[in-house]
């Protein structure tokens, strides 16, 4: 197996460093989709690479070699992957499996709670649900099937903004619900669980979906500076409202990006960036091709190891009967062709 098996890890690291910055330079809807697609490709190919590295060691186990009908010894000699690397890959895969299950379970539970809260409101309440509280609070609650999503806003928030700014707020939260941004964020969390090198992805997707909703709101009210003003006013009013615990500071990613969002709104409609999109798509394709190449290499390695396979009576199982029979025929022909 050549160096190419490590290419997805390099691609992941590269995407982690440059992806969020590139995605921020295009319309946020495009940026979100592109970054998630690239992240998914990197995560899947990295998993494949880890599996290939792990396979070189697992393939040497006598039982596995017998079932697969290849020579464990020959695999050991032909394989450039050190046992330490392979062991690390196995350990990493196990950790990733745990992280994936944990992330998926946590997200499912949070979504279930949101849907439950939404269902408790009943069909009588409209989309806007008002909390009679002075706290500055506004958020969108995603809906389950056959339910409507809710926009929960405190009276504190409603009284902070004027009528036009409230329209911005409602349009912003509506955009989150219409585009189902919680799905993008969940996918980002799962991608990072599968590929820890992509750790910056969830924060980037969080920011991009906020920007997406801002752009939608600006289009709805047809006024970018009004949208920026609503955002700035709400953020300033909320500044003393929340004393974040250290834990929520870690988990709540959108913390300091309000100024960035305001500036982006004031900077004008984001340009489409066909060149960046093309370059990223090309990089993505290269990544997938290299993964296929690494898969091929491994197949060849095991193919070569198969030639060194000698069936031993104990090693013959139902799965290898066919192989064994074939080998016996070959050996018979070699001796003198008579039974």
């Amino acid at each position: 197996m050549e160096l190419i098996v490590y290419a997805p890890f390099a691609a992941s690291a590269l995407l982690a460093v440059s992806g969020p910055r590139l995605a921020a330079r295009m319309p946020p809807a495009t940026g979100t989709r592109l970054l998630l697609t690239a992240g998914l490709a990197c995560a899947l190919t990295s998993l494949l690479s880890l599996a290939l590295l792990a396979a070189t060691l697992i393939g040497r186990l006598p039982l596995v070699a017998a079932v697969g009908a290849w020579s464990g010894d020959r695999l050991r000699h032909a394989d450039p992957v050190s046992p330490l690397t392979a062991k690390t890959a196995i350990l990493t895969l196990a950790t990733i499996a745990i992280a994936l299950v944990w992330t998926a379970a946590r997200r499912a539970r949070a979504l279930h709670r949101a849907r439950h809260a939404s269902a408790r409101l009943g069909p009588r309440t409209g989309r806007l649900a008002v909390l009679d509280q002075p706290a500055i609070e506004a958020f969108a609650v995603p809906a389950g099937r056959g339910q409507q999503g809710r926009i929960v806003v405190s009276t504190g928030m409603l009284r902070t903004l004027n009528a036009e700014e409230r329209q911005v707020l409602l349009a912003h939260e509506t955009a989150h619900l219409d585009h189902r941004h919680h799905r993008h964020r969940t996918l980002a969390a799962l991608i990072t669980a599968a590929d820890p090198l992509l750790a910056p992805l969830p924060a980037a997707i969080h920011h991009l979906t906020e920007r997406w909703a801002d752009e939608d709101a600006a289009a709805t009210v047809t006024d970018r500076s009004l949208t920026a003003r609503a955002l700035a006013r709400a953020a300033l009013a909320a500044r003393h409202d929340e004393r974040p615990s250290p834990r929520s500071a870690v988990l709540c990613f959108g913390r300091s990006d309000v100024p960035g969002r305001v500036r982006a709104l004031l900077a004008g409609t984001p340009a489409r960036r066909p060149v960046i999109v093309a370059v990223l798509t090309a990089a993505l394709t290269a990544c997938l091709v290299s993964a296929a190449e690494a898969g091929n290499d491994t197949a060849h390695l095991f193919g070569r190891a198969r030639h060194g396979y000698h069936a031993r009576p104990l090693g013959i199982t139902a799965a290898t009967t066919h192989e064994a029979r074939h080998l016996i025929t070959v050996l018979d022909h070699r001796t003198d062709g008579s039974r």
């Binding site: 946590r106 997200r107 539970r109 949070a110 979504l111 709670r113 949101a114 439950h116 809260a117 939404s118 408790r120 409101l121 649900a129 909390l131 500055i136 609070e137 506004a138 958020f139 969108a140 609650v141 995603p142 929960v152 928030m157 707020l169 912003h172 939260e173 989150h176 941004h181 919680h182 964020r185 969940t186 969390a189 979906t209 906020e210 909703a213 955002l231 709400a234 953020a235 300033l236 909320a238 500044r239 409202d241 929340e242 974040p244 615990s245 834990r247 929520s248 988990l251 709540c252 990613f253 959108g254 913390r255 300091s256 309000v258 100024p259």
Partner: peptide, 23 residues
């Protein structure tokens, strides 16, 4: 109906889309 959600900041970070966060 929302008490549970409002009490759980962890869930809010993950599932709910908030308009602004603190500065």
């Amino acid at each position: 109906a929302m008490t549970e959600l409002l009490d759980r900041r962890r869930d809010r970070a993950g599932t709910l889309a908030r308009f602004v966060s603190s500065l």
